[in-house]
Amino acid sequence: MAELWDVYDVNRAPTGRTHVRGEPLAPGDYHLVGDVWTVNFENKVLLTQRHPSKPKGLMWECTGGAIQAGESSLCGAVRELREETGLRADPENMYLIHSIRLKDRFVDTYAVRMNFALPQVVLDEQETVQAILVDWEELLALWAAGKLCPESRFPLYRSALVSFLKQF
């Protein structure tokens, strides 16, 4: 069955229409994406490596993906985290740290702190091939080396992610 997205206008107002994933969006139409930076109680950040067949294959990233029709950004981000890593986050512990409008999407970036270890991560083999936990310096080194995506947006929410990490 085809995955459906809700369609939004340039001001993020719902249009009442849906869109089939994989088909081009019409000019002026937008959909929602939710990204999640997951941090464990040792202040290590979870990264997954993209499947080689995907765009930007083998780059490291936080968890995320398209929000399905009928979902809120928050609920979709929680679902993406569960589907891609097997980790179950409490929506009340998810913090919106950044939101941006891009060419055809609005991206909401969340951060969550959870008690987990790497052996608990169960990867979706169609999405990712590996998971690692990194400290802040290792995360910055991956970004500086051009191995972290989305490379262009990371500087926009870097300070918000730092603020989130400093809470603990």
Score class of each variant (00 low, 15 high):
residue 8 Y to Q: 02
residue 11 N to M: 07
residue 12 R to I: 06
residue 13 A to Y: 07
residue 14 P to C: 12
residue 14 P to M: 12
residue 15 T to K: 06
residue 15 T to V: 08
residue 16 G to R: 14
residue 17 R to W: 11
residue 19 H to R: 09
residue 19 H to P: 14
residue 19 H to A: 10
residue 21 R to V: 13
residue 22 G to T: 05
residue 23 E to S: 11
residue 27 P to Q: 09
residue 27 P to A: 10
residue 29 D to M: 06
residue 29 D to Y: 11
residue 31 H to D: 08
residue 34 G to F: 07
residue 35 D to F: 00
residue 36 V to E: 07
residue 37 W to V: 06
residue 37 W to P: 04
residue 41 F to V: 14
residue 41 F to Q: 15
residue 42 E to S: 11
residue 42 E to K: 14
residue 43 N to W: 06
residue 43 N to Y: 02
residue 44 K to A: 12
residue 44 K to P: 00
residue 47 L to G: 01
residue 48 T to C: 05
residue 48 T to R: 03
residue 49 Q to C: 11
residue 49 Q to N: 06
residue 49 Q to T: 02
residue 50 R to W: 07
residue 51 H to P: 11
residue 52 P to G: 08
residue 52 P to K: 12
residue 55 P to A: 12
residue 55 P to Y: 09
residue 56 K to S: 12
residue 56 K to H: 11
residue 57 G to T: 10
residue 57 G to Q: 12
residue 58 L to Q: 14
residue 58 L to S: 15
residue 58 L to V: 10
residue 59 M to H: 13
residue 63 T to C: 11
residue 63 T to L: 14
residue 65 G to T: 06
residue 66 A to C: 10
residue 66 A to T: 12
residue 66 A to F: 06
residue 66 A to K: 12
residue 67 I to S: 06
residue 67 I to T: 11
residue 68 Q to R: 15
residue 69 A to I: 08
residue 69 A to V: 10
residue 70 G to L: 07
residue 71 E to Y: 07
residue 71 E to I: 03
residue 74 L to S: 08
residue 74 L to R: 09
residue 76 G to M: 05
residue 78 V to H: 05
residue 78 V to S: 08
residue 80 E to C: 02
residue 81 L to A: 01
residue 83 E to C: 07
residue 84 E to D: 06
residue 85 T to H: 01
residue 86 G to V: 02
residue 87 L to D: 09
residue 90 D to Y: 04
residue 93 N to V: 04
residue 93 N to I: 11
residue 94 M to N: 02
residue 94 M to Q: 04
residue 97 I to K: 01
residue 97 I to W: 00
residue 97 I to D: 01
residue 98 H to R: 01
residue 99 S to R: 11
residue 99 S to W: 04
residue 100 I to L: 10
residue 101 R to Q: 10
residue 103 K to Q: 11
residue 105 R to E: 08
residue 107 V to S: 00
residue 107 V to Y: 00
residue 109 T to N: 04
residue 110 Y to Q: 04
residue 110 Y to K: 01
residue 112 V to H: 07
residue 114 M to T: 13
residue 114 M to D: 14
residue 115 N to S: 13
residue 116 F to R: 01
residue 117 A to Y: 12
residue 117 A to F: 15
residue 118 L to H: 00
residue 118 L to T: 04
residue 120 Q to S: 12
residue 121 V to T: 08
residue 122 V to T: 14
